[in-house]
Design a protein around this nucleic acid. Structure first.
Lengths: 406, 406
DNA sequence: CTGAATTGTTCTGCTAACCAACATATTATG
DNA sequence: CATAATATGTTGGTTAGCAGAACAATTCAG
């Protein structure tokens, strides 16, 4: 009998940390920029031409990028081939909301290939949301198997989510509590699944592909039917916190003796600033931010202006706090918060200039979200891509598409 | 004539990125833990025994660590030598305040070897502070040259500091504006100098050597004569922001229609919560936090209790915001904020439990600062050590002590 | 005193990056 | 249109640094 001497465990799985780093570096650059010539890659990475050559070759073999004919003209010298993210490598995105579950297919590079919004009669339970998503994904299955390599599913949930284990601690507007959605989703579909807070993912998406492209310090605030969500990118990385619940700016204190919030406190931003009174004053029964904006621009009532000003004041307090705590270069407002800002340009900037600390506010720019309705899909997919890009060689263990689409 | 073909530029200066990383990893571990056996180092780094051997050898040669006889007994097998930070490698720390300039000498490993508090008649200007520090350092010079290798000077300044260039943007209580203190200090002493916000450095010090040891998400709040400073460690790294001004929790909004703050806003924590009324009610003319605590414990007046409760309420609002935004595992209160908390244990925890979002507050622990009066010295020195530990081999260019002290 | 356990030490091999020389493709120039 | 200049891909050789194996050292258990 042979005694079981400890064997190397992993057959061949992983490579040198140095290689992994450099592969991650290059694939991330390509993913974030969309197109990058090999020459640009050598400049940005600081690596040797020959090294970049082998690395790109390896990434091509892994199906993460592909090289195409040089486009850059007007340059002296031998043209450098363009390196692009391979769109056949993709992730699925799931975003449950109070009135719908949206499922998307997002390619490496951030292209939303497909988006299906499944409207629900009533607020979906976690089980219902998972079942809906699983059914839609099952419907897409043959197409997915044929043309894509799916690296996983990302879920963007409006609530407190523990990114580490994918458990929704509490999603007040969905009335979910301690739901292990990632595991449920994974079991229902067979794909690995990760979950995180929707606004946090929105912040990441805007940072990489949207209004904050190229920046490193971004505060994202989204106002929707289910309150105000926040996500923060600090020094280039998403703020997570010890349990992954960081960034909940919707519950910033903005008013003494304010109304009670469902969170247990009083005077939260979310209770003072909401879209319901705006819709009412605009004479709308419901709808999205675009419809609200149109109605508000058309209507010219003093009550409406007063309400908007009131809300902007409270929003200003939150932004002032955020600027003092994070010193961001970019603030991105989405949903009806973006509408409020657009209708009264300069107001928030003015508040910040007078109220926030000296140095911090000067450089901060306030933008509206740039990615629109694709935002959540891109953010959720990014959750998956982040893992893939961190160790590109690890992708080998994933199922491969029968015939790649390009 | 020889054409000047591009030469390797740096003679030999830097090593492989991989080596640099591993050296940084090991030296940081030793610096943070104080003592670590080589065997433990191999476990923690995951590197091979032989590799750790060479790396430690290199660090010994660089004068950053030294090995001593094994202490760990009761273990089977060959004993592993202890690796400790070499205390002859040190940094100088400077902390200007409204009524004094404190200069310290801190060894690698965080030991404060010397601390000199130079009381000033009036608030020092930047020039005066630099001159005082330079004079004290000049006095120590022969000792420094004989026994230490000084890796630089770290300055902890109560105000907005741009860490990148060492310029104090605005220190309201010192009445400094746009003072390039790091450059001034460097020119006055010949040592390289870095500067940062005092509370940010306090947060780092508490994270590494104090109440937050081993944690990754920490909020530090210090209440002193010159207001309330804040520093935040998020996911293991100090929160800096785009210009380095992040973490100013002293200007969190806590009260509608509150008093006007010097920062331009109203209702800031710093205006509502201050030590002056506490000192007054305690019947003290001045003094430090310890004296205040003693007086408050002795005195049992309802006015004092009411004022303390009022201030704790506002502090609670700030902490609630901080918990919702950062989801920290540890909150550290220093100065009179620590006193307030100690006098009424459980109050802040109670406020958090009811007011902050579900998941976040449960795990958050509130502590008083553990490092006392050494905190600023350690934090400021850490500013220098961080750079040294990030590239241990770069230390070779620094002056070497004539005869090392151990 | 012997054996087991653990760790330091030495030597060898492999991986991956860099470098230099050469090949290639484009623009600029006359 | 030919040639020079420029920039970049490609190839082969060199080197740094880590892992692994074999061996030596040191301690504990009995």
């Amino acid at each position: 009998m042979m005694s079981a001497t400890a064997r190397p465990a992993a057959p061949a799985g992983d490579l040198d940390p140095s290689r992994r780093n450099n592969l991650a570096l290059i694939s991330s650059l390509v993913h974030h920029h969309g197109v990058l010539s090999r020459a640009e890659l050598t400049k940005r990475t600081g690596l040797n031409r020959s090294t970049v050559g082998t690395l790109v070759g390896q990434l091509v073999a892994l199906g993460l990028v592909y090289e195409s004919a040089p486009s850059g003209e007007g340059q002296v010298g031998r043209p450098s081939p363009d390196v692009r993210p391979d769109p056949s490598t993709a992730a699925l995105a799931v975003n449950p909301e109070v009135d719908a579950v949206t499922i998307g297919l997002v390619s490496l590079g951030g292209q939303v290939q497909k988006k299906i919004r499944f409207a629900t009669e009533r607020i979906p339970t976690a089980r219902e949301a998972v079942n809906i998503a699983a059914a839609v994904i099952a419907g897409m299955r043959s197409e997915l198997d044929a043309s894509y390599r799916i690296t996983g599913i990302g879920m963007a949930v409006p609530g407190l989510v523990n990114r580490a284990d994918g458990v929704v601690r509490h999603a007040p507007h969905l009335a979910w509590r301690d739901e292990p959605v990632a595991r449920m989703m994974s079991e229902a579909t067979g794909y690995p699944c990760l979950a995180d807070n929707d606004a946090s993912l929105g912040a990441e998406a805007e940072l990489i592909f949207g209004a904050g492209a190229g920046r490193g310090n971004l505060v994202y605030l989204n106002g929707g039917a289910s309150g105000i969500g926040g996500g923060v990118i600090a020094d280039g990385a998403l703020l997570r916190g010890s349990t992954g619940y960081a960034g909940e700016l919707g519950h910033t204190f903005v008013r003494t003796d304010g109304k009670a919030c469902h969170c247990g406190a009083t005077g939260c931003l979310e209770t003072e600033v909401s879209q319901a009174p705006l819709f009412e004053l605009a004479g709308l029964e419901g709808g999205d931010a675009a419809q609200l904006e149109e109605a508000l621009r058309a209507k010219d009532s003093p009550e409406l202006a007063a309400e908007a000003a009131r809300q902007l004041g409270f929003l200003g307090i939150t932004l002032r706090n955020a600027v003092n705590t994070f010193d961001p270069d970019t603030i991105v407002l989405d949903g009806f918060l973006g509408v409020l800002h657009s209708l009264s340009p300069g107001t928030l900037e003015g508040l910040l200039r007078t109220q926030a600390l000296d140095g911090a506010a000067d450089k901060t720019r306030i933008h509206r979200a740039a990615l629109g309705s694709d935002l959540m899909m891109i953010g959720a997919a990014e959750l998956v891509f982040t893992g893939v890009l961190a160790d590109p060689a690890g992708i080998r263990e994933l199922p491969v598409p029968a015939g790649k689409a390009r």
